[in-house]
Design a protein around this nucleic acid. Structure first.
Lengths: 239, 239
DNA sequence: CGATTAATTGATACTTCTCAAATCCTGTGG
DNA sequence: CCACAGGATTTGAGAAGTATCAATTAATCG
């Protein structure tokens, strides 16, 4: 019997949030954080639960406190395309609210996730009255626009093998490693394929290839990068 | 003997610019437009000329007054990937400046183009002191982020044929039609291929297919949409 | 621990790319 | 204004890359 959403008490004050330094709230003053803290509520999502649904009109944004989520679009054949991930300190739902368009991607929790919810009206209030925060969000969306551009070029020009190698590096950069050196995210082969933009079987075959070549090793769904230089070379990442 | 850049005199005051209503400057007051007008200079680019170069650090943004430009990234094989187009009223270079990253895409003029140049410092000044303008740019980047997401899903999941049909519709929506009903942009087959993310020969073959099916007709580089419903169907655009 | 879902592998079909050759067109200079 | 050179377009053929379908094995969740 899982509740759709679970309220968490007591919500942590934004000022003391560990993610603050790397979030859109990083350079705000005490007063400003106080305003946001008073407006927010905290919620929990279980693994697999839908956080936002493609096509809907969100009534607020979430700032992820702890957890991991995927943003994806459903293609005409019902296949998922993962656009990006979100984890600690990341803001989700803001794009739709600010551009006044329906949500362009569904968001589901990849593991149990705790997030702070800021209602639309409050979010706008802070944006409009706080140029510093507004500029932060502006920087954020411009950065993501750059990342999206990279993804477009990659999908259009690289082979599946190259994209897979690239994704391995992206996953490590996004989620880091656990104490044993494995990338700290568990994805199914299907999810990996949905990120690379290929069939599950193709992703599996090429993952095996990378294993045979000693670039990566796996243990179930856990993946460890064994030779990042080789992966960078395969991915043609010169940046 | 073509000048690299040509200064245009006298620059039109932003208040009287025909593009204003559909630009990021649409809802600004007279005073605010006055500030920007005083800070800007007007420049002209000839067809084919580079407006901004991938990897560079732009010193300002351009607002296109009249003309057309393509934004593209160069892949590891030297192949162009067109990310998007810009035309009358569109702002370019802002992404890089706001995210404080090198330019993610080169921009070149597809035809003779006149643009207003706003230096970085002035742009920031207006952004920081004018919440309305800041919010406009924020909306703009969030909208483009949504478009980029669509392009990602399209590249990852659709066939070349489907993407080509989609691009035909996008081109018409972006550039409109001339008096004879042709899309008001001239692109080489290679540029079309670089947008769709395919080989030039493949784009040519599939364009011929669309012609044979009566979806489009062509006259040199000019393209006319003859059956948009059919194109929408091929592109699986249900939106 | 068992049912169900996920991962893997093989075989085959289809899509797309690459290379090559033959027009065709465009922009330039005379 | 015309001719011409060089680039662009088109078509064909074959190779390579990916997807799909099917069957088996492995892993996961309750």
């Amino acid at each position: 019997m899982k509740p759709t959403k679970e309220s968490i008490e007591p919500p942590l004050h934004c000022q003391f949030c560990q993610n603050r330094s790397q979030s859109a709230f990083h350079n705000l003053g005490t007063d400003e954080l106080d305003t946001i803290s008073k407006l927010k509520t905290c919620v929990a999502f279980r693994k697999g639960q839908v956080i936002m649904h493609e096509g809907a009109r969100p009534q607020g944004v979430y700032c992820i406190h702890r957890g991991k989520a995927k943003l994806f679009k459903i293609g005409s054949e019902g296949k998922e395309q993962i656009i990006r991930f979100a984890t600690n300190g990341d803001l989700i739902g803001y794009r739709s609210i600010l551009s006044d368009e329906p949500i362009s991607a569904s968001i589901t929790a990849l593991e149990d996730t705790y997030a702070c919810y800021i209602p639309k009206s409050s979010f706008f209030e802070v944006i409009e009255e706080n140029p510093k925060f507004s500029l932060n969000v502006l920087k954020l969306s411009c950065h993501e626009l750059g990342e999206a551009g990279k993804m477009i070029a990659s999908l259009a020009q690289k082979t599946v093998r190259e994209r897979l190698a690239e994704i391995m590096l992206v996953l490590r950069a996004t989620f880091g490693e656990d104490e044993e050196g494995y990338i700290d995210i568990k994805l199914t082969r299907e999810e990996i394929a949905n990120m690379v933009g290929t069939a599950t079987e193709s992703a599996i075959r090429l993952l095996s290839e990378l294993k045979d070549e000693g670039c990566i090793s796996t243990q179930g769904r856990r993946i460890k990068l064994e030779d990042r230089a080789a992966l960078r070379k395969i991915a043609s990442v010169f940046e």
